[in-house]
Design a protein around this nucleic acid. Sequence first.
DNA 1: CAGAGAACGTAGCGAATGCTACATAACTCG
DNA 2: CGAGTTATGTAGCATTCGCTACGTTCTCTG
Lengths: 189, 189
Amino acid sequence: MQRRDVLAELATDYVLEHGVIGLSLRPLAAAIGTSDRMLVYHFASKDALVAEVIGRSNARSLEVLRQLPPAPSVAAGVLALWRAMSDPQLDRCQRVYTQAAALGLLGQEPYRDVVRASNAEWSRAVATYLTSCGAAAARSVRIVRLVDATIMGLHLDLSVETPVGVDKAVRDLAAAAQRISDGDQSESR
Amino acid sequence: MQRRDVLAELATDYVLEHGVIGLSLRPLAAAIGTSDRMLVYHFASKDALVAEVIGRSNARSLEVLRQLPPAPSVAAGVLALWRAMSDPQLDRCQRVYTQAAALGLLGQEPYRDVVRASNAEWSRAVATYLTSCGAAAARSVRIVRLVDATIMGLHLDLSVETPVGVDKAVRDLAAAAQRISDGDQSESR
DNA sequence: CAGAGAACGTAGCGAATGCTACATAACTCG
DNA sequence: CGAGTTATGTAGCATTCGCTACGTTCTCTG
């Protein structure tokens, strides 16, 4: 394996632990046994390095998601998805993504392209998964929109405090997803 | 009004436009007609200043939310809440909150206390609002958990791209909230 | 073996960071 | 008026930042 790839993977490990926001080259380089000089040499700039790291973090997420065994129903699939995303490994990837997205919320947005691409790929993968759980293909994107946003919001809540009732909210979400898949037209023409 | 309050309000305006993440004292000071020297003098440190700004930003959110007229149903209340939070003014406050929360996701968390307090206050206010829309008081916190997280997640999505189907997701959310309020026990024992 | 290209170390540049020391002005109140 | 608190300006310190210039080692290939 090329040196560049090794460094990229090590840097990804480091970022998954320390985040993207305050990141600076020298501590990162020291932690993975190289120098800021070499990081810039291999990745051209800090922003390019971080962008690649974000991409790799999201690639790891996708890898886990794609190996998630299908559940017997959409509701069960949502619960399985929640459990999978609550695993520390995947949770860290999601946190990195959230930090990258939050950077673009106001003012500067150095990682816009990677974040966009990651978001699109992730949405597609979740749709594929929920379809494998029996979601009507025509409705899966609609379900994904709701499920993905809610899981992300709940995880952000969980990072702030450890609120009661999250499990219940997840079950409510699963039920809502199931209803949409089953063809509920009541309130959403 | 004390000079300190004036500066705090001006700083809040500035942060609502430029975010908390890359913030540095000198550009902020220059923009609001003072110096970094004076900011540290009045607020003791940068972190203390930013913490206060985050608090004020969330106070503005609460002010708007508390003046939101009750809707005739829970579903309508969720839609009204969504519309209110999509207003640029309130949206910016939410973005600042998200950035502050995202800072604490990995590694450092300088604004933990303010974020926690803001989150708690906000949840309570949303619960109060939805109760005024007819939500059963005993179920309002459960509804809030779902609604608030979803709206936050959807707004984060919207900041990344402008995806189709968000409106539909909001209506799905409103319908789900309505069902919970009406006493749906089906999937969430 | 020779040469080329990749990998790396040392040192440092210019800019920006939060914050402080020191002195000065302005205003309030006895 | 005089004293004391509040507000401000100037200058700078120590550190860190991303990045680069320059030179050296290593490895691979012809």
